[in-house]
């Protein structure tokens, strides 16, 4: 578009295009400002006050909330939980998604049906999953818990949901269960998109299947993986609903991650100033990932 001839005419087009572009983006900007920027700024402000929900009125206390975060023993525990929950959930769903993508990219009878079937968990509401999880792991009447007891993994009268590690494993498994279809589809598309000539060239060179997989398939999927990673990390680390409905953060805070900690500080101990500070920290940490991603993403290059 950069052209030196007929500057006056082009300028006109430029202005018009600029205006058209801005008009098209305007509704987005309005929504982003009113529904995201404004709440974020409110939160930022709250995080510097001692606001609480028991008494009205608050005062500015500088960085005290932030100082408190770093002296709060629970914060490091819950931050660690957030890390465990996010890493295992994300890696798990990417691995499962990728494995199933390899499966459905094969030519086989009933392949389309299988693909459709594998998509089902994506639309099962989190609340239904929570119900199922609590029911099948009920210490007295839960079928899976019963099997675990028979295998000796869980003591009699015990439930996997009452064990700190067990509860974390359960919520992670169910989170993977409901979120692998998205990576699966994306990987499947990416696999289909790999240039066939690359494979042919490799065959000519006498590479075996493993080598083809390692040196052609995987590198081709690097960008897809990175994008999925960033999307799923941001989504998982801020995800509240499933854990809240399955374990409520217990037992002994072993499945409490930062979003639940924020909720408990807002509506359990009513310290919304402090809760706001935690949410700012969580947002900032995720922002680091996003910025790292943006710097190397094609989507944001011109």
């Amino acid at each position: 578009m950069k052209n030196n001839r007929g500057i006056c005419f082009l300028d006109n087009i430029h202005t018009r295009r600029k205006l058209l572009g801005m008009t098209m983006v305007l509704p987005t900007v309005i929504i982003l400002v009113a529904l995201i920027l404004y709440p974020v700024i409110t939160n930022l402000y709250l995080s510097f006050t001692n606001s609480n929900l028991l008494k009205s009125g608050s005062s500015f206390i500088g960085f005290q909330n932030y100082a408190k975060i770093f002296s709060d023993k629970m914060f490091s525990k819950y931050a660690w939980n957030t890390l465990i929950w996010t890493v295992f959930s994300v890696v798990g769903q990417l691995v499962v998604g990728f494995a199933l993508a390899l499966l459905i990219s094969r030519q086989m009878r009933g392949g389309t049906f299988l693909r459709s079937f594998l998509l089902i968990p994506y639309v099962v509401p989190a609340v239904s999953i929570a119900l199922i999880a609590r029911w099948i792991l009920n210490s007295n009447y839960g079928i899976v818990n019963h099997w675990l007891q028979n295998m000796g993994l869980v003591a009699s009268g015990q439930s996997a949901l009452s064990l700190p590690v067990g509860a974390m494993i359960v919520v992670i498994i169910f989170n993977i269960w409901r979120s692998y279809p998205f990576p699966m589809l994306i990987y499947w598309a990416a696999l289909k998109g790999i240039d066939k000539e690359l494979y042919e060239a490799a065959n000519v060179d006498g590479a075996n299947k493993l080598q083809v997989f390692l040196y052609i398939t995987l590198p081709q999927l690097r960008n897809t993986t990175l994008t999925l990673l960033i999307l799923r990390i941001a989504w998982t680390a801020t995800y509240f609903d499933l854990i809240w409905m399955v374990t409520g953060g217990g037992p002994a805070g072993s499945t409490t991650q930062l979003p639940i900690m924020i909720y408990q500080n807002s509506f359990g101990t009513f310290q919304i100033g402090y809760a706001a500070a935690i949410s700012v920290i969580l947002g900032l940490i995720l922002m680091v990932f996003v910025i790292a991603y943006i710097r190397r993403s094609k989507n944001f290059a011109d």
């Binding site: 439930s159 949901l161 009452s162 509860a167 037992p251």
Partner: peptide, 8 residues
């Protein structure tokens, strides 16, 4: 008490 009662 049944051990599961931790989260009962």
């Amino acid at each position: 008490s049944p051990p599961a009662s931790i989260s009962w």
